[in-house]
Simulated assay, not measured.
Amino acid sequence: MRVVVTDAEVTMADVLSLRLAISDPLAEGTRLVLRQRGGGAEVAVALGAPGAEVREASVAVSLAPLALTPGRWDAYLEHDDPPGGPEGVARAPVRERSPDRGPRRTRVQCVDPGFSLDRLDAYALSRRTLAYRAYRTRNGYLAVKVAHVEPGADVRAVWFREGRFEVTGLLAYTGFVDDDSHHTARLALRRAEGPETAVTATATVKGVRFHAALSLCDVLAATPEYEGLWEPSLEVDGLEAPLPLGARIDDVDGKGRRVQYPDTRVDGVPVRPCYTSDDELRLEVGG
């Protein structure tokens, strides 16, 4: 049986919703198996009794009750061979089978890249500690990514203008509503190392969208001899802790390698935005 996922989505309620194109009806007792990459842990969910002769099927699996731990989980379909079943059945290229007619397992192919930034933005509006995302692997198979998440300020644009550092983005996992309400907020820059030094400026937060600008002259004046990294954060009234600025919602890893911002000079000192290995934004001041 050949199965291809044509549409994959994790809904706002953390339900894995799949549209399947299938060559044959799902066999009775078919299970969706999620196997953790590297660790080998597995969970299995029964997909119900076989249906009518169809070429498409929909599957919905609630992920929260499965207690998936952070990591990447590959998807398989599995069903048991009947006792005394035929040997020599043609196998798909990627298939696992236990000895003595054990469960027959096929890795699930996928043609949906699972990328919609609008959908990911909407998902990130809820207050969460775990985030789930369905995606297509480089080799064209279905997988689910599970990650710990905390409230943060997701960066969408960074630029320099008239001696100012400016940034816009989206508040993620805060539980704030995407409406026209305004929240008092401040952008803060703090030294990544050395004595505590902070430079702050008023920021604008409307619903879940933010914009902030901060004078680079104030940064240099705070520590004229300092060269190194500064950590930006957004302090929003109503939230317990400052929000780190980063870029994680789109799930494109390695922004330190992929994203290069133009630098500027203030009184001859170079200033450049950059990302850390875990995709948090920094300002690099000096050589």
Rank of each mutant, 00 (worst) to 15 (best):
P65W: 05
A247Y: 09
L18A: 06
L220W: 02
D24S: 11
A124N: 10
V94H: 07
L171A: 06
R72V: 15
D278E: 14
V236H: 10
R72F: 09
A13F: 10
L47M: 04
E162G: 02
V94W: 08
A21D: 09
V259F: 15
A212F: 02
I249W: 06
G256P: 01
T202P: 00
V259L: 15
G38F: 04
P232E: 07
M12K: 05
R35C: 09
A147G: 14
R97E: 12
E227K: 01
T204R: 12
A192F: 00
H148I: 00
H183N: 06
A44P: 07
A213H: 01
E231K: 09
V269S: 03
T264W: 02
L16S: 10
E78H: 04
E284V: 02
R248V: 15
E166Y: 05
F165Y: 13
A172L: 05
R127C: 04
L20K: 03
D121P: 00
D263Y: 13
A221C: 03
E96Y: 10
D250F: 13
M12Q: 14
P93L: 09
P70W: 15
A188M: 06
R105K: 10
R282H: 02
L220E: 08
V146M: 11
T223S: 13
S215W: 01
P83Q: 02
V94Y: 06
P70H: 13
A157K: 10
T264D: 03
T184S: 12
G84I: 07
V252S: 13
A241V: 12
D267I: 13
V5W: 03
P244I: 01
M1E: 12
W73H: 12
Y135E: 11
P195E: 12
D154M: 00
R127I: 00
R91E: 15
Y173L: 01
V4W: 06
T197H: 00
G38Q: 12
